[in-house]
């Protein structure tokens, strides 16, 4: 998995609440058996008109935000389905960090499996970051995972909370399947115990 340490980049403001996974990557793009290549369809129905042309009003189509690496959004980001295609599409587009007042649980967890950092901050802080993001490509946000801070283009610094295990895995780029497989003997003994206690399972 890709490491995440620090990131300084353009942040795209997307101040909508309840941005769901169908908006992030509509289901017609889930018919892939690969993880890559979904970035071109990120936010497809908002980003493109039916005839395939770009919708110039959508933030990621504006020159300043075409290469955004951060999204600043409204509460409950990523609600809806468990599809990991949502973080895959976000990552494939080039976005490595999403900042919002809150996230849907499954989406939040999926981000970490893909080297994306989701940051939850209070609404008033997100409002400040949104205003900063609106300044365009000259205003870059800096995210420092080790220090757990987000810094605006004019130097205002905000602290965020993150689970220590998730932070560690992201900083080191650890693959958690490998980590768990090292615990095979504990899993073996759990199974043995359970076969006696709950033989019908």
């Amino acid at each position: 998995m890709d490491k995440f340490t620090t990131l300084t980049g353009v942040a795209a403001p997307l101040p909508l609440v309840n941005i769901d996974t169908d908006m992030i990557i509509p289901k017609q793009f889930l018919k892939t058996i690969k993880r890559e290549g979904l970035g071109k369809n990120l936010f497809d129905e908002m980003r493109f008109n039916r005839d395939g042309s770009e919708n110039p009003d959508f933030v990621l189509n504006q020159p300043a935000y075409r290469h955004a690496e951060i999204i600043v959004a409204g509460e409950n980001f990523g609600c809806g389905s468990s599809r990991e295609h949502a973080p895959w599409a976000i990552k494939d587009f080039g976005i490595r960090c999403v900042i919002a007042p809150s996230f849907a649980d499954i989406f939040y967890g999926n981000c970490f499996k893909n080297g994306i950092l989701p940051i939850a901050l209070p609404q008033d802080v997100v409002d400040i970051l949104t205003e900063d993001a609106k300044k365009g490509s000259n205003a870059r946000l800096t995210v420092d995972l080790e220090a757990q801070t987000v810094t605006t283009s004019d130097g205002q610094e905000f602290h965020f909370e993150i689970d220590s295990f998730k932070k560690h895995c992201l900083l080191e780029g650890l693959d958690d399947i490998g980590l768990t497989m090292e615990k095979a003997s504990a899993i073996d003994s759990f199974e043995a115990k359970n076969a006696t206690l709950h033989p019908w399972v």
Partner: peptide, 9 residues
């Protein structure tokens, strides 16, 4: 529900 990385896990 779980994501695909967790499915693999």
């Amino acid at each position: 529900g779980i994501g695909t990385s967790e499915v693999e896990h």
